[in-house]
């Protein structure tokens, strides 16, 4: 996904002279071809993220479209004020390409794990948050980022994530995509969790629980209309995300549901990282298993919400 994203920056920049790329201190050879062919629009400015965001705002205010790439936590935690003021307040056309959304950097520990990036950026007026499911969706998404007005946060998965979308799933900023219909339950997912959502829905279908899947590649602005259309008929709704259960996709859905005034009762659960800093190394997959952000867990939670399974006691 990251490679596709950066390849697309290069492809788009070849066609559009407004596009600049700014990296911090990225891996050797990153966007080599971009640097060779368009050296004046390629900047590698060091481990100075606050300045990166500010200078990108300056370029954007002059009419440029600036793609910044570095690790997600540095863009969100360290640069929050620069993003809020230099980008959002100024409506600057800067695109933040964030490596390692969620627990991609599991072996590197909590300093590098972006578990609350969606939550904190979701509070920023004018911010757009994109979390595609796979490289194919990334390829369809990137052209839409060129002429969009205002800043965009693009959350990257690990790379090599299984491809679960295809050309039949279009991409438009601000749209949620129903990937599967179902009248008994609805799974709402963002980013790479679409795969687990689809697997869970298939397992549930096999035992007669008709489960829909709504893929939300744009977490902000949230496609409330499509969500409500899919949520209204179903009795059970589950969100799944590689992110804290506080303030991310699950938070957004909970806010909307609380105010929706549904005519029929709904049961609802968020699946995500609990309110902790991940306490183990290992891999993205092992941390997702540790926090039960898996297809099996989705199946189990939906069975519970449908009254077919008792909740498991929580470990003390």
């Amino acid at each position: 996904m990251r490679k596709t994203c950066l390849d697309m920056v290069y492809e788009l920049a070849r066609k559009d002279s407004r596009i600049f790329f700014i990296g911090s201190d990225l891996g050797v050879g990153t966007l080599k071809q971009f640097k060779t062919e368009m050296p004046n629009r390629f900047l590698m400015e060091g481990v100075s993220e606050a300045n990166l965001v500010g200078m990108a705002a300056g370029l954007a205010l002059e009419g440029k479209i600036v793609y910044i790439n570095t690790i997600a936590t540095f863009l969100t935690r360290r640069c929050f004020e620069q993003v809020a003021l230099d980008l959002c307040l100024h409506k600057a056309n800067v695109r933040l390409i964030a490596n390692g959304g969620g627990v991609v950097y599991a072996p590197l520990g909590p300093t590098h794990e972006a578990i609350e990036d969606i939550a904190i950026f979701r509070t920023l007026p004018r911010m757009t948050i994109l979390a595609p499911a796979d490289a194919e969706e990334m390829r369809r998404l990137m052209p839409a980022t060129v002429d969009h007005q205002g800043p965009i946060y693009i959350r990257l998965g690990k790379g090599g994530d299984p491809v679960v979308t295809n050309d039949r799933v279009p991409f438009q900023i601000g749209k949620a995509y129903p990937m599967k219909e179902g009248s008994d339950a609805l799974i709402v997912s963002t980013g790479i969790m679409l795969k687990a959502a689809l697997e869970a829905a298939a397992s549930l279908e096999a035992v007669g629980i008709k489960t829909g899947v709504l893929h939300v590649p744009t977490v902000k602005p949230f496609d409330q209309e499509t969500f409500l259309e899919k949520a209204r008929p179903v009795p059970a709704i589950v969100t799944v995300e590689e992110h804290s259960v506080i303030g991310g996709l699950g938070g957004a859905v909970a806010e909307i549901m609380a105010e929706a005034g549904f005519q029929t009762p709904k049961r609802f659960r968020r699946i995500g990282i609990p309110d902790v800093f991940p306490d183990q190394y290992g891999s993205q997959a092992s941390l997702l298993r540790r926090y039960e952000i898996t297809a099996e867990k989705i199946v189990s939670v939906i069975r519970q919400l449908r009254g077919l399974e008792q909740p498991q006691p929580q470990p003390a």
Partner: peptide
Amino acid sequence: PIAVGFAL
């Protein structure tokens, strides 16, 4: 930082 962007 913004001025550096302007100047560049």
